Amino acid sequence: MALVQRISGLHQQGATHESAAIVRQVAVMITPEDVARLATLLQENGPTGSSTYLARSVSAGAPEHAAATLAVLRREGMIDEAADLFHTLWSASSAALPALLAALEQSGQSADGQTLLWERASAPAEELAELAQHLKDAGRADDARHLLRQAAGRPINEVAAIAGALNEETAMELVGELVRLRSASDIGRFGAAIQGATELYDTLLFAADDLEESRARSVFAALRTGGLPTQPAPRPRSRSRQRR
């Protein structure tokens, strides 16, 4: 209670920066249960909005602490505070997100992790490529695959930009998702968008060639209609094979 009185006193004196700094510091130092208790006291006695500010501030700490606090706030019925914390977690960096996803799983909140991943599927190309690599490096290949599947549904010019930002292995996965999910005409437009990137275009040809027979023929027909090649560019030791 003394801490709440100090925060309220500073706020009333116009020292809002000082009171906010105290809240930020405390948020990452105390247990999730104590965060919930302090938030309750701030709701009742603190400055307006201080309890949700406390919850948001938890996101600056360790992923495990943030995930555990989110679970406690929900369990205690602190809906606004939990919502503010969760929305703040949307801005976690690409490097921090794999650990956050793991922490949410460990605290029984896997669905929230998938929501965060779904939100990131609309990130700019460079950011999405960076996140995919971080997920793979953290051993979360399934999450990386889910991210790429979502990205494959974006506008074709965006998918092309993402593919160009990925490393070769991950670009192959994205192109594989694209040829399985999109129409033949969409794949033809994708081919036109990446034609200048020889390796990436060849990846598209190989992915299309591995489709079921009738679908593969439709894709190659769409490429021909767009005046695009259906054979890989000649190179030494090319992995070229006959196209349909």
Results as ranks from 00 to 15, higher is better:
Leu135Ser: 04
Glu119Thr: 10
Val26Met: 05
Leu89Val: 09
Ala60Asp: 11
Leu211Ile: 15
Asp202Thr: 12
Trp90Ile: 10
Ser185His: 07
Ala96Pro: 06
Gln109Thr: 03
Phe86Ser: 13
Arg235Tyr: 00
Leu135Met: 06
Thr88Gly: 01
Pro124Tyr: 08
Leu135Arg: 01
Ser107Trp: 01
Glu130Met: 11
Thr69Ser: 13
Arg6His: 11
Arg120Trp: 12
Arg239Val: 05
Gly14His: 07
Leu200Ile: 10
Val72Gln: 07
Leu70Asp: 05
Gln106Lys: 15
Glu213Pro: 15
Leu70Arg: 03
Glu158Ile: 03
Phe190Ile: 05
Glu64Gln: 15
Gln106Phe: 04
Gln195Ser: 02
Ala67Cys: 05
Ala197Met: 04
Ala233Thr: 01
Gln242Cys: 03
Asp143Gln: 05
Ser94Leu: 06
Leu38Thr: 12
Gly113Ala: 09
Ile162Trp: 02
Leu70Glu: 01
Arg120Pro: 05
Gln242Lys: 09
Leu135Tyr: 11
Ala21Asp: 14
His11Asp: 10
Gly61Ser: 07
Ala102Arg: 14
Ala71Asp: 10
Ala36Thr: 09
Ala193Asp: 10
Ala55Tyr: 05
Leu42Glu: 08
Ala141Trp: 04
Ile30Glu: 00
Thr170Ser: 06
Ala129Arg: 05
Ala99Asp: 14
Glu81Ile: 11
Ala161Phe: 00
Ser240Cys: 06
Gln109Leu: 15
Gly176Leu: 04
Gln5Met: 11
Asp210Lys: 13
Leu89Arg: 07
His87Val: 06
Gly196His: 11
Gly113Trp: 10
Ala221Asp: 15
Ala152Lys: 04
Ile187Lys: 06
Ile22His: 01
